[in-house]
Design a protein around this nucleic acid. Sequence first.
RNA 1: UGGGGUGUAGGCAAGUGGAAAGCCAUCCGCCUUUGGAGCGGACAUGCGGAGGUUCGAAUCCUCCCACCCCAGCCA
Length: 563
Amino acid sequence: MKNEKETTTRSDFIRNIINEDIKNNKNDGRIVTRFPPEPNGYLHIGHAKAINIDFGIAEEYGGFCNLRFDDSNPIKEKQEYIDAIKEDIRWLGFDWQDREYYASDYFDQLYEWAMQLIKDGKAYVDDLSSDEIREYRGTLTKPGKESPYRNRSIEENLDLFKRMKTGEFPDGAKVLRAKIDMTASNINMRDPVMYRILHKPHHRQGDTWCIYPTYDFTHGQSDSIEGITHSLCSLEFEDHRPLYDWYLNELGVHHPQQIEFSRLNISYTVLSTRNLLKLVENKCVNGWDDPRMPTLSGLRRHGYTPESIRTFCNRIGVAKKESIVDIALLEYCLREDLNKRVPRVMAVLHPLRVVIDNYPEDKVEELDAVNNPEDESMGMRKVPFSRVLYIEQEDFREEPPKKFYRLAPGREVRLRYAYFITCVDVVKDEKTGEVIELHCTYDPATKGGDAPDGRKVKSTLHWVSAKHAIEAEVRLYDRLFVKENPLEGKEDFKSYLNPKSLEVLTDCHVEPSLKGAKPGSRYQFERLGYFCVDPDSSDEKLVFNRTVSLRDTWAKIEKNLKE
RNA sequence: UGGGGUGUAGGCAAGUGGAAAGCCAUCCGCCUUUGGAGCGGACAUGCGGAGGUUCGAAUCCUCCCACCCCAGCCA
């Protein structure tokens, strides 16, 4: 409904191009895209944006999106990453059916094409070292100069390239280069490397190859082989497009259109495999799936829903402007989704003991509570009430400031689904002065939370029965960095890490209905936020992660009062 | 100072010569047994800047400014 409207109304420059292409019957109206991850790390939410575009557009236009692993560099790639990437894409809710491809499966064809370019006099074997190649390449403002090996005969090039393949030369001894133009203003066109010698086994090809094609010589042709119509990638490949086009034109094969869009950035985090890896290696976080990480596995463990991530991706749009999206939008999408689907429950994170003086010592009542006010079909549950309770420390102030509606000496409030209570006494620690216990009275006539005489109360508190509650550990997560753009300062981005990004609470009490809650289950702890059960949790010891707090109007008021 | 890009509100982002969409954030109301949710409202005489064309310009032209990317045998 709302989502549907968003997707059908959506307009962006890529869809405009595609609409135009369809109008002109380009590619007979077919739309085929691909998502081409390199299996060199875990997927993050920036990838989710790309996935949403690649798969989303294909779906929208009745086309296909292939999953293709761009695995032409055996030094960085691992099967472990392939498995994780597939799991994350599935979790997001996208399906590539049987169209799971690997650039490495095209190595034979790529080799044939390289031979073809040599025969056409468009490629040559170069003996220059990598340092020499760099020197010969020139600079941004100075043209490059031609390699002394540039004009070898076709026969010699053919012979040398074959011998590169058979393993006759050590790593780095020779490369195959495209013969384009060493004076080109676009540096990518200054005789780019097509093949390098790498005596490294490939995770899928084993020892079959000791020469590997570079990205530029792999990507476009892989697109071509798969019949891709629109090859969507990020902005930094814009400069490579002339080369993408060059190879395809010289080879005379199907020519997909490369279109570039800007990659996702989100405030208060970093979004690149390289920097994420640094956080893992430096133990700034507890692994790739640490709930503070913007990786899909981290977000999953944090309690994010795939739907909320997809909604977010739809709302941020697609454009060529480099931007930083406010993380508040992501959190908004999350809350919106969780609000509709997640059961409510009561939990006290910072307990303050409350004794109801006029409530019978051994009495226990099972009170009715609504599971989700947004969804009646989720039903009701019973919550036990007794003489000794815990409420949140924050919900009591001995000297309440203006606009503080919660409990205070002499004040009456409602205990959710239970009774009106009035605070009659405050017990403090003699040494520290800290409030350690409250004495209250309850009004038996207000059972369930309504006063028959119609009197109102200004606030409703959540609570748990002390003797029935289950103890739990709660991990409070906050933004990973204190700086909106951690990459912009003078210091290393790691110096802007938020020291309070994780706070572990061990003295929490949750209502008994949570007994046996399984990892992955999500709840709203009323008035606090959304939480999910961590994989570290067990029946003996429940562990919850705070996914996101509820919008907190009081916190804003309090902040404004202070200013 | 080579080449390729991008500038619309605090953050995203539509708009392609004919009244500056929408979302988040912020603020104000209403409602509420979650200070949640929901509902209603406010929020760009102006589109990086300056000129020009036109009855009419964010859209077309000229010049200027700012920012991003490229000198891997990474992708």
